[in-house]
Amino acid sequence: MTQLSNTDHPQAMPGLQAELSEPIDTMYLTFPVGTELYGVSITVVTEIVGLQRIMSVPDVPHYIKGVINLRGKVIPLMDVRLRFGIPEKEYDDRTVVIVLQVNDAPVGLIVDGVNEVLDIPDDHIDRAHSFSNSEGRSLVKGLGRMDERVAILLDVSRLVEDEEIDIVDIPAARA
């Protein structure tokens, strides 16, 4: 198990090391998904771990691949590709899990890999009005611009809400 928390392996989060004295509210951990670059606020990131054996679990949305036992904590893992509705990719050496603490519960994001931590001040973020669906809900909080790059910043609490799954469709149990 590779465990890249910022205290054990500071090099895993280069941005963080250089700017520890800075407020962390404007910092985002970025990770590529296909050709796109995404970011989550590091205030919710607890650690980054290598992929370990996933135990499948019933009754969860299809993008929850199962749970892992992370040092005695049971953590559900979300495949962000499935969550975003793009084709699955086979997991490889670069695949990692970003463990987040969202609404008092842990969740792990399975991502293709992680890039650096970027400091993106609020005035560099374009709020996303156009990504909302008809109910005004979007996984995207905004677009962060740093130099030539654009990071798609995620709204993590939306990410863990699972509005698409319609639980009413669950076939009634036949005892």
Binding site: V57, P58, D59, V60, P61, I64, V67, V74, P76, M78, V102, N103, D104, A105, P106, V107, V160, D162, I167, I170
Partner: peptide
Amino acid sequence: EGALTRLR
């Protein structure tokens, strides 16, 4: 907890 509370 969290996403797992929906388990019946």
